[in-house]
Nucleic acid binder design. Structure first.
Length: 859
DNA sequence: CAGCATACACTTTTT
DNA sequence: GTGTATGCTG
């Protein structure tokens, strides 16, 4: 038997003449497209690179292209491989294809995320990489636990060499499609020279556990394709048309995967925007998109540049920023729209002030200001660089009662209680899931701590049996004592029972066994009842006193009750065996004591966690059984709980990609925060360019109004730091920017300036926020801008304010290190001997002359 | 073994 | 400043 989506099915006949002839049928959807989109839709054969800028209708082009493939009869739904990165994108695409065709198409079996498609492929060919087809998919948490075990087993100090780090290194290698033997020598020094060795051990352990991690999904499939040309060929033949969304985000493994699959027909259409590549740190290679024409000679490159989202000012501002990047394929967005406000720029004293202003502004906009129509809260979003920036806004919005929603944060399936519950389910499905067992042995507390786990782990450690099995043996041989022994026995028995129920679901024989047992019990109840009746009869057992009779009756009634509760239990078993997996899930959570554990928990989170557990059980309804649920859940990790209601959205810039809002706030544009210092330190110019793309993504999310802001002072990890406006602010073309005057500059108090006169406050504000290079450039733009590149201008400004100001022997002040003396100057860095902190090399921007140090201290 | 105290580290996060 | 991870004591 072959499935409709099965590449092993008889090969489809090529596009028949009659099918092609259908192309003549009217295709009304084409009329909606602009010329570039239309070209991208109609160029069905051969490699196509669709460079689709922000808001240019890329999804429309992509989905219409699929519709066109189907409508013209060029191929069938199951011969199209369409890959996305997120489940959300995949879902959207499915919906829109159906809509384009005017009716629901039978599902596209090969439309999905890279990972989902790889799972499907890997389940078919698991044996080729030493796995069984029912392998489990570990998430990051499991991955780290496992690595930690390995690190400890190798006697490596997991303090100095944390599992997180190793996980990162291995992920990185997997992203580049390196199996342990392919890790280049140059990289092998990683992780204290033990990197590759541990990588190998990790892969071995995964195989033993019949498990894979996210990276493996691609790596294994690529490996199969590379080593089994026969398998590859099947799929090459099958997938006659390939479409890829967000191509700029592909990593090497994904790139190889695509190139292998497309090698035969070369009908590959990649859609992307090199200017929106913001996942380099996760292994994405912008190079993939930059190299497309070389990889696929004769590729047609189509640029989608007409923007339907933003006003001209917003587009021009975004263009001004992104222009600073080298290595671009080049693209300039344009729009037919003419009206619109300039991008607004405003500086604030500190982060709290910024949040206060944004809150006020949002309230004003919701009311309708300056002749603008009132704007719903749903139309507004605050996009931050790092999630810790969200806090200031949440605090402020809570105090003024402004409804908001945060996108991101811990996702549903990453929450502790959900992962615990899932571990229980996993054990029920496969008791040999050691990771799951170790997660829940002592959750809830059962008196089975580290020592008990060690005992279990050591038991028969040379034989390859699961932890549950070892635990069973420990119980039998009484290697534990007291409460631990009792509880462990209980747990092991419970797992056995759950597994029995899972394994035998749908088995008629087991159902009838249970039913027979029920019958037996019912007979017993009947017998006991008659006995009770006998005792009630006045002439029965006359030798007994009234009291004794009553106690006999009571005893019998207790027995009856026991039987009846047993019957109830067995009836539940019958329901479960008949396929009620919801009941099973409830039973597992109940019987394990897990639900009770949270019910007894007094912490404020407990009710929410119980709520989440309920939601988890509810999510089960959509699946046939527990196995099916577990299989999907590991890949579908999105936040589905989209609360309704008019709310302002707060999220990171990364999370905002692909979204759009009429009004967008971009706070925290300060050097070090955005662009992020770490990004620049770790990846240099490449990092800076990615940050710049992030800025570009941020600005282009706005439809009508974009407001950029920065603060002069910010508390970072509890420490006050003075900040400089982001270099990206220098790159905003002034003619498209309106500089707003911050409140408080004129006679306004800068918040709680404890004892400081307002004149001093103003001086402090000027000294910090409005004397900085970026700000000064904003004020005096013009001539300098046209004659110098932004970076040149920047250097000059730094020279002027920083380097030239200091000479050897100067007394200086640093926010963190305190007072010191300049010992030497090296480029933009100063060697300073600090009075308290010792000798340090510090970037000049962070140094103030000692006599002006007081200006720095806000309070 | 469990609760509490101290230490520490800390971007971004599609699967 | 805050949350997590480990270490010590009852």
């Amino acid at each position: 038997m072959t499935l409709p989506d099965d590449p092993n099915a008889p090969a489809p006949s090529g596009p028949s003449l009659s099918a092609r002839a259908m192309a003549a049928r009217p295709a009304p959807y084409l009329d909606d497209l602009n010329p570039a989109q239309r070209e991208a839709v109609e160029a069905l054969d051969g490699p196509v690179l669709m460079l689709a800028g922000a808001g240019t209708g890329k999804t429309k082009a992509l989905t219409t292209r699929i519709a066109h493939l189907l409508h013209t009869g060029t191929c069938r739904t199951n011969e199209i491989l369409a890959v996305t990165f997120t489940n959300k994108a995949a879902r959207e695409m499915k919906e829109r294809v159906a809509r384009n065709l005017g009716q629901s198409v039978e599902g596209m079996p090969w439309l999905g995320t890279f990972h989902a498609i790889c799972v499907k492929l890997l389940r078919r060919h698991a044996e080729l990489v030493g796995l069984k087809s029912n392998f489990t998919i570990l998430d990051t948490d499991d991955q780290i636990r496992l690595l930690k075990q390995l690190i400890i087993a190798e006697n490596i100090d997991d303090k100095r060499w944390p599992a997180r780090m190793l996980a990162g290194i291995i992920d990185n290698w997997k992203n580049r499609a390196w199996t342990p033997d392919k890790v280049p020598a140059a990289e092998a020094g990683a992780f204290n020279n033990r990197g590759t060795e541990l990588y190998e051990a990790y892969q071995r352990r995964l195989r033993e556990l019949n498990a894979v991690d996210f990276g493996d999904l691609l790596l294994h499939v690529v490996h199969i394709f590379q080593t089994r040309p026969d398998v590859l060929e099947q799929y090459q033949n099958w997938f006659r048309y390939i479409l890829v969304d967000e191509y700029q985000d592909t990593n090497v493994a994904q790139y190889l995967w695509l190139r292998l699959l497309a090698a035969k027909h070369k009908n590959i259409c990649c859609v992307g925007d090199d200017d929106q590549s913001i996942y380099g740190w996760r292994g994405a290679e912008v190079g993939n998109i930059l190299r497309f024409e070389k990889d696929f000679p004769g590729a047609k490159v189509i640029r989608l540049e007409q923007n339907y989202r933003s006003t001209p000012h917003i587009l021009a501002a975004a263009a001004g920023v992104i222009r600073g990047n080298q290595d671009r394929l080049g693209k300039e967005l344009w729009t037919e729209a003419t009206e619109g406000e300039k991008v607004r720029l405003i500086g604030h004293w500190d982060g709290e002030e910024e949040a206060r202003w944004v809150g006020d502004e949002i309230e004003a906009m919701a009311q309708g200001t300056r002749g603008m129509a009132p704007m719903g809260l749903d139309s507004m979003a605050i996009l931050v660089r790092a999630s810790h920036q969200m806090r200031a806004f949440e605090d402020r919005f809570l105090t003024i009662g402004l409804p908001y929603r945060v996108i991101g944060g811990p996702r549903f399936y990453e929450r502790m209680e959900i992962r615990d519950a899932m571990a229980y389910f996993r054990l029920a499905v496969s008791p040999e899931d050691d990771l799951a067992f170790e997660r829940i042995v002592n959750t809830p507390r059962r008196g089975l701590g580290d020592k008990a786990v060690q005992t279990i782990r050591k038991k028969d450690s040379e034989s390859a049996v699961s932890m549950v099995e070892r635990a069973r043996r420990c119980c039998e041989e009484k290697l534990l004592s007291g409460r631990g022994l009792k509880e462990l026995t209980r747990l092991v028995n419970a797992i056995d029972l759950w597994h029995y129920l899972v394994r035998n679901a749908g088995e008629k024989i087991e159902v009838s066994k249970q039913q027979a047992a029920i019958l037996e019990l019912e007979t017993e109840v009947e017998q006991l009842s008659t006995e009770v009746d006998l005792f009630t009869a006045p002439d029965y057992a006359e030798e007994l006193t009234e009291k004794e009779r009553e106690s006999e009756i009571l005893k019998l009634q207790v027995q009856i009750e026991q039987c009846q509760s047993r019957i109830e239990l067995l009836q539940r078993f019958v329901s479960i065996l008949n396929g009620d997996h919801i009941l099973l899930a409830e039973m597992i959570l109940d019987e394990s004591g897990y639900t009770g554990f949270w019910q007894n928990d007094k912490t404020p989170e407990a009710p929410g966690r119980l709520e989440n557990l309920k939601e988890l059980v509810k999510a089960l309804e959509q699946f046939e059984n527990l196995q099916g649920f577990l299989e999907h859940v590991s890949l579908i990790m999105d936040n589905q709980t989209e609360e309704a209601g008019e709310k302002v959205t707060i999220m990171t810039l990364h999370a905002a990609k692909g979204l759009e809002y009429p009004a967008v706030f971009l706070p925290g544009w300060e050097d070090g925060l955005f662009p992020s210092q770490r990004s620049m330190d770790e990846s240099g110019l490449k990092g800076l360019e990615e940050e710049r793309r992030l800025a570009y993504v941020g600005i282009t999310r706005a439809e009508e109004l974009c407001t950029i802001s920065f603060a002069a002072n910010r508390r970072v990890y509890g420490q006050w730091q003075s900040q400089l406006p982001s270099r990206f602010i220098d790159e905003l073309p002034e003619e498209h920017v309106e500089v707003l005057t911050p409140p408080g500059l004129y006679g306004g108090g800068y918040g709680a300036a404890g004892g400081m006169s307002s004149r001093l406050e103003e001086r402090a504000a000027r000294a910090d926020a409005y004397n900085s290079p970026g700000w000064r450039r904003m004020q005096s733009h013009g001539a300098a801008r046209q004659t110098q590149s932004p970076s040149e201008a920047r250097n000059l400004v730094i020279d002027a304010t920083a380097i030239s100001t200091f000479t050897k022997g100067d007394r200086v002040f640093h926010q963190k290190f305190g007072y010191g003396t300049v010992m030497g100057i090296e480029g933009d860095k100063l060697d300073i001997e600090f009075d308290k902190a010792g000798a340090k090399k510090v970037v000049a921007r962070f140094i103030k002359p000692a006599d002006r140090a007081d200006d720095d201290v806000p309070f």
